[in-house]
Simulated scan of single mutants.
Amino acid sequence: MPDIRFGIVGSGMIAGVTAKAIDQATGARAVAVSSKHFDRAKKFASEHKIAKVFKSWQQLVEARDIDAVYVATPTICREEICLAALKNGNHLISEKPFLNGLSAHRIANQAQSRGLAFMDATHFTHHPRTKQVIKQQQKSIGDVQRIYSAFLFPFVERDNIRFNPKLEPTGAIADIGWYNMRAIVEFLRPAGTIQSIAGAVKRDQETGAVISGTGMIEFSSAQTSTFDFGYDAGVCDMDLNILGDNGLIQLNDFVLDWKDSFVFGNPNYSADFTLRQGMATPREFEHFAVDTQKSQVVYMIEHFCHMATTEDIELRNAAAARAIHTQELLDHYCSSVGVTLETSNF
């Protein structure tokens, strides 16, 4: 089967991470890039051995020799590009977040109506460990009742778009709070609707951007999630605690694994997790190591290529549903802390 030919919209840091993953993935090839900064796009193309450089995303999504488009632009302009890519018959993988839940629905509906794949670019979802943790949940700890997640790291660069509310209207909430919400979708899998939600956020005094927050969500199924996120902790914290009827599963790198992620990359480490039950002391904790041969970003690209070539409609629908559910949880949290979501022009 021929490679899926990718066009990349955007030339920033995360676009570079994904371009590298496309190059390393089986069944994928990056063939074009576009950016509003043409010089950056040319440099990006040279670095990643990409043949075609377009001056606009409109030219890229209309190109006939592209099978899929990866969108890595600021949130505020993402929907227009996603819809145009789908309209022109391209499968779609997009950075997150989306403008709001309605925007995510519009993109998913467009993909479904045209028989195309749509996936959000959440890396840890595709890590083999995630699947193994879910299996261990079912085997060892029973029904999951609550989870706690934290994603915090030191980052204060006010010239970055994360500190520009015009481009990223919800700041850290949707940038890294997305992963707290995705942990709910992947591991808690709430059986009920939101019963109550509360939280608090902190804004940067100079830019007004949301830079950190905390929260709690209670579902009608009596399941709960508490979470923290932000740029201002002075440390990288990626803890995840999954509590069930019969025990606890813990990870301390659930977003960017210590072993293979683009941030850390320590090949001598392993991707692991810990199981605790009853009154076990530390020497009695069970430790599980998950073998990985590739980074979770590469796994993501390969899973997307499979989704683009399969006729398994349920697989595609499930991917879209996870993106929508994650975004809708973010919307509810934003509303609870008084952060106004912009509306789309569509």
Score class of each variant (00 low, 15 high):
Thr125Val: 15
Met181Cys: 10
Leu167Cys: 03
Arg146Val: 09
Val201Trp: 11
Leu243Arg: 12
Ile141Glu: 03
Asn241His: 13
Ala191Tyr: 06
Thr214Gln: 14
Gly171Asn: 10
Asp232Lys: 02
Gly244Asp: 08
Gln138Asp: 12
Ile141Phe: 11
Phe155Ile: 06
Thr226Leu: 08
Val210Lys: 05
Pro169Asn: 15
Ser140Lys: 07
Met181Thr: 02
Ala150Thr: 07
Val133Ser: 13
Arg158Ser: 08
Phe153Tyr: 15
Val144His: 02
Phe124Tyr: 14
Ile242Cys: 00
Asp228Asn: 14
Ile134Lys: 14
Thr214Cys: 14
Met216His: 05
Ser140Ala: 13
Arg158Tyr: 07
Gln145Ser: 09
Asp239Thr: 14
Tyr148Ile: 13
Gly177His: 12
Phe229Gly: 04
Pro128Ser: 04
Ile173Gly: 00
Thr226Ile: 07
Arg129Glu: 01
Val133Arg: 03
Gly142Ala: 13
Arg182Pro: 00
Ile194Arg: 03
Val133Glu: 03
Met238Val: 04
Pro190Arg: 03
Arg146Gly: 03
Asp228Met: 06
Val133Asn: 05
Lys202Phe: 03
Gly213Cys: 12
Arg182Gly: 01
Phe155Glu: 04
Lys139Trp: 05
Asp228Ala: 12
Gln138Ser: 10
Gly208Gln: 08
Asp239Lys: 08
Asp143Phe: 11
Thr130Pro: 01
Val156Gly: 01
Ser221Glu: 06
Ala174Glu: 12
Gly177Arg: 08
Pro128Phe: 00
Phe153Met: 10
Val133Ala: 09
Ile147Ser: 00
Asp237Pro: 01
Ile242Phe: 02
Gly142Ser: 13
Lys139Gly: 05
Glu157Val: 15
Gly213Ile: 11
Arg158Ile: 13
Ala172Thr: 02
Met216Glu: 15
Val156His: 12
Asp159Trp: 10
Ala150Val: 04
Lys166Ala: 15
Ser225Asn: 10
Leu243Tyr: 07
Ala191Leu: 14
Thr214Gly: 06
Gly192Cys: 01
Glu218Val: 10
Ile194Gln: 02
Thr125His: 11
Gly171Ser: 12
Pro128Ile: 00
Gly142Thr: 14
Tyr231Pro: 04
Val133Pro: 07
Val210Glu: 02
Ile184Trp: 00
Ser212Cys: 09
Gln195Arg: 12
His127Lys: 01
Lys135Glu: 14
Gly244Pro: 12
Tyr179Gln: 06
Pro154Lys: 05
Ile176Met: 13
Glu206Cys: 06
Gln145Trp: 04
Thr214Ser: 15
Ala172Glu: 01
Asn180Tyr: 01
Ala150Cys: 09
Val210Ser: 02
Ser196Glu: 10
Leu188Thr: 02
Glu218Ala: 11
Glu168Gly: 03
Ile173Met: 04
Asn164Cys: 05
Phe227His: 04
Pro169Gly: 10
Gln136Pro: 02
Gln138Gly: 06
Gly177Phe: 09
His127Ala: 02
Val144Cys: 01
Thr170Lys: 06
Ser149His: 03
Thr125Glu: 11
Gln132Tyr: 09
Glu218Gln: 13
Gly234Gln: 12
Gly215Val: 10
Thr193Leu: 05
Gln223Lys: 13
Ser212Trp: 01
Gly171Ala: 08
Asp237Gln: 06
Asn164Lys: 13
Glu168Asp: 11
Asp175Arg: 05
Ala200Ile: 07
Gly234Ile: 06
Ser149Cys: 12
Val144Ser: 04
Ile176Ala: 08
